[in-house]
Structures are given as structure tokens and as C-alpha cells.
Computed example of a mutant assay.
Amino acid sequence: MARILVTGSADGLGRATADVLLSQGHGVIVHARNADRAKTLTDLVDRGATLIVADLSRRQEVLDAAHELEDGTTVDAVIHNAGVYSGPDVIPVNIVAPYLLTALLRTPTRHVYLSSGMHRGGHIDLGRLDWDGNKPSGSYSDSKLLVTTLALGIARRWAPAVLANAVDPGWVPTKMGGAGATDDFDLGHRTQERLVTDQGLTVTGGYWFHGQQQQPHPSAQDPDVQDQLLDALAGATGIELPRR
């Protein structure tokens, strides 16, 4: 059985994903951004999940969490589920934190990054982004185009040692999606669960929606854009993506 980190697992899709993986017998690391949010995970911890607390909008807390995870039991896979919809934390949480966890955690052989169909309306303008989150500098759509590009860039750089994929969970009824969301909630988390557990599934560099691969925005598939993003993230954080 695998040991899997699910970021943003205090509620919504992240919690459902962690719950299912735990029920399947996997070792699960659940994550909350603060101690109050962590209280909602008590039942999963009682069932054997490991808890990590870190505010992903604060870079030092991301670094501390990565070091804590590296010092513990091997992490086999990461589902980068945590995300925010608006405000200055969009870029730090939705793209910088996934990059740092990818670069710093040396043992995972599978990474799944939560994207969105809204990524198709995003733009990549690296020069105007505030990577530190001191001010709003990118929309939710922009961030999801960036994280999709990150996923495909990681897949290209680290193949075949690491499998990296992006998943659009659909417009599902969560706190972020709202009660009026029309997509199936369960379908919204099954794909990422399969991508980190199915040993017969060896696809990398895919963009998935409800179990099927689709074509993402052309920019996400452009190796030059992928390299520009990875270089910008390395420059902004001071942490290079290691060779695998």
C-alpha cells in the first residue's frame, strides 16, 4: 500500500480523497492550514491518518512541512489539492506551494495536481506575478493554467521515474464550487485517487477529467513555456528542481 499526502484535506474534495484512500488501506497524510482547521480531521487521524499543519500561503511553513515530511516515513505520492479562489494567496497557494513540495520531497514517484476547466481562460504573464503574495497578481484561471503547465513540465523533466498528471475535478458542490455546482462530487475525486494508487496506470503528462484524458490549453503543452515557468519558480524561491 502507498503512503500519500493530500494537501487541503480539511474539507471538500481533499477530505473525500483522503477518506477513500484511508478506507482502501493506504497510509494517508492529511493536511490543514491551521490548528482550528485540523480539528475537522480528528476522525481521520483516529483511523490512522497522519496530520500535518501548514499555511501554504506562507513559504516558510511550506518549507518546514517539506522538511518534516522528508524526515519521516517515505511519501510515495502527493495529491496537490489545496487551492484558493481569489486574493493575494492565489499564486502562493495554487502554484508556489505545489512547486516547492514537488522540488523538496525526494521520494514520491507520483504527483497529481488539481487543475480546473477554468484554466482554459487563464493567461501566463510571468513578469507580473507576485510569487510572495504581497498583492493580488493572478486570477484563479491563471493559477490553474500555471499548475497544469507545472504538471506537464514535471512529467517531461522527470519521465519515466516520476508520473505527473493534472486533473480537472469538474464543477462540484464544495465550499469553493458552491451549492449550485452541476458535476458529480464523487467523480470529482476518483481520478486523482486512481492516478496515485493504480500500479497498472503509468500515464504521465496527462490532463484528466472524470477518468478520461483531454487536451489542455496549448500553452501548458509547450516545452518552452514549461521551462520558463520552472525557471521563474526556481528564481523566485531559490530552490531548483532537482534531476530525477
Rank of each mutant, 00 (worst) to 15 (best):
A181H: 09
R128F: 04
E61C: 05
D64L: 10
T73P: 14
S9H: 12
V112Q: 05
A155E: 00
S23C: 02
L114D: 06
G170I: 07
P223C: 10
A49C: 13
D89W: 04
A65C: 15
G178S: 11
A32G: 15
G25I: 06
R33I: 12
K175R: 15
Q24F: 01
K175M: 02
R190L: 07
A82E: 14
V84W: 11
A159C: 01
G153F: 04
A35V: 10
G83W: 05
R3L: 01
G206R: 08
L56S: 13
T7Q: 14
L22S: 11
A179F: 04
D55H: 09
R3Q: 03
E68F: 10
D198F: 05
R37E: 13
L129N: 08
L126W: 07
G211K: 01
G133W: 05
V75W: 05
G178K: 13
T191R: 04
M1T: 09
P242D: 11
D71K: 15
D183Q: 11
P136D: 12
S57H: 03
G170L: 08
L126V: 09
N94K: 13
T107Y: 02
G121D: 14
S57M: 01
D130G: 11
W208I: 04
L150E: 03
P169K: 10
V28D: 05
A49N: 08
V45K: 10
L163F: 06
L129S: 06
L229D: 02
T74S: 13
T174V: 10
G12M: 06
L21F: 00
K144F: 08
G117A: 14
G27L: 00
F209A: 04
S115E: 08
E240V: 10
Q60V: 10
G27K: 01
F209R: 15
A10Q: 14
N81K: 12
I154C: 01
A18M: 06
Q192T: 02
A232M: 04
T50W: 00
D125R: 15
D231L: 06
A54K: 13
P108W: 01
V20N: 00
A97Q: 12
I91A: 15
T102S: 12
D130S: 11
M176D: 09
P216N: 07
Q24S: 00
F185G: 07
I29P: 03
N94T: 13
T74E: 15
